[in-house]
Design a protein around this nucleic acid. Structure first.
Lengths: 110, 110
DNA sequence: CCGTTATATACCGTCCACCGGCATAAGTCA
DNA sequence: TGACTTATGCCGGTGGACGGTATATAACGG
């Protein structure tokens, strides 16, 4: 159930929700921004990941709005999601630090 | 060919090779150490990953030794592998920084 | 007035890295 | 003798990501 480390798309989706509740399309745009253009989520990736996050209790449906005839379904991060994301940040930072050390990339700005 | 981001096991295997050439079993032990006991590579994961790394030119067979009747097959990281690992370190660090920011984990030691 | 782009959600088949178990084999230690 | 460590390697199953497609409306541009 509580599977291994988050893959990048899922990690970024959770990160996107950490600031405030967002709807699907908003997440896609936000993730592109916070990854500095590196990650462009596909619809299939997003909604599949979102379903899994809800199923695992890491995110939850927040509310629904109808904006100009289009439905917007908002999601928010849960306490468990925030906790797991914090652990993931620590893991990524530790891995980056360890590998940087091995590569001799000592003086790298945080 | 140059597929997406490295998964954690592959990342740590490359990291292990970054310091010096190592044989399979040595990698398993080293990875357990550098991940502070978090990651225990299975043989299946290791040798599969190693084959892929060689196939992609990120690692190469270094030499073979026979130590007390047991064969040791050493692998080393290539220039391309080192380059990719550096890029991966930057990616991980950027993701950790972005998520830490969103979580309000500002004052975290690098 | 019509086609394209942007907004927005959702399904589905495919791929592949990782997982876990198993096999093999020689040396060590109790 | 049997358990454990070192050491390499195969194989089936799982699951997340990918890419494409479908659906629908609004806005923009030619």
């Amino acid at each position: 159930m509580a599977s291994g480390p988050l893959r990048e798309p899922t990690f970024l989706i959770l990160t996107s929700l950490a600031a405030e509740p967002r709807h699907g399309y908003g997440i896609i745009q936000d993730v592109e921004g916070l990854s500095e253009g590196r990650v462009r989520l596909r619809a299939g990736t997003l909604y599949g990941s979102l379903d899994r996050l809800v199923e695992q209790g890491l995110a939850a449906a927040d509310r629904e709005e109808v904006e100009q005839g289009r439905l917007r379904r908002y999601y928010r991060i849960t306490g468990a999601g925030r906790q797991l994301l914090e652990a993931e940040v620590a893991r990524l930072a530790a891995n980056a630090r360890a590998a940087g050390h091995r590569l001799g990339l000592e003086g790298l700005a945080p």
